[in-house]
């Protein structure tokens, strides 16, 4: 990865968008990147446009807010509709799940369909971990952070009660990422 990479995670409040952003940014810091992260706050964080944005850079970040997303994770139709047009054309990437999001036609951005809901329910018996499944898939397909760092970030920020579920979700997501890639 060179220069700047801007990632937007989005969904509705309660899907763990903010936590996923925190973990991604923390992993980036462990990898030695300069990170600026911000997320929806207050009433916004409860609404359908809940987002968490992480700017990755090899040198100190000048403007800390996201300007154009290189990667969008859209965990709900509402979030997809708001943010899908704000992804870099050609090189950009949108991760979504056909079970919950119907993509828009005519966008020149690469879409990757991931059966995250199904995997969460079937393999993890919990929809709560979908955010981390997405993270796993993102990391596997872009190498935006290292596996070691994201695992360290989960250990640091996730309470003991949910830690093993989250680590399992990460693995499930990485398997998914490998499949779509391979």
């Amino acid at each position: 990865m060179i220069g700047i990479m801007q990632v937007r995670l989005s969904g509705f409040g309660g899907q763990g968008v903010v936590l996923a952003g925190l973990l991604l940014g923390q992993a980036g810091v462990f990898d030695g990147k300069y990170i600026s992260g911000s997320n929806s706050y207050g009433a916004q964080a409860r609404g359908s446009g809940c987002k968490s944005e992480v700017v990755f850079s090899d040198s100190p970040v000048d403007f800390p807010h996201l300007t154009t997303a290189d990667i969008l994770i859209a965990m709900s139709q509402g979030a997809y509709d708001i943010y899908c047009t704000d992804v870099r054309e050609e090189s950009g990437l949108i991760l979504y799940d056909q079970a919950v999001v119907t993509p828009r036609e005519g966008l020149t951005v690469k879409h990757i369909d991931l059966p995250v809901t199904e995997v969460s329910v079937r393999r993890l018996k919990s929809k709560q971990a979908a955010n981390i499944v997405y993270l796993g898939a993102l990391i596997e397909s872009t190498r935006i952070v290292t596996t070691g760092s994201i695992r360290k970030a989960i250990t640091m920020h996730v309470g003991e009660r949910f830690r093993s579920l989250n680590l399992k979700a990460l693995r499930a997501g990485m398997d998914l990422g490998r499949k779509v890639h391979g």
């Binding site: 925190l22 810091v29 990147k33 300069y34 990170i35 992260g37 911000s38 706050y41 970040v61 800390p64």
Partner: peptide, 10 residues
């Protein structure tokens, strides 16, 4: 300000 207070950075 709110933006700096909530900004999470290295």
């Amino acid at each position: 300000d709110e933006a700096v207070g909530h900004l999470r950075e290295t």
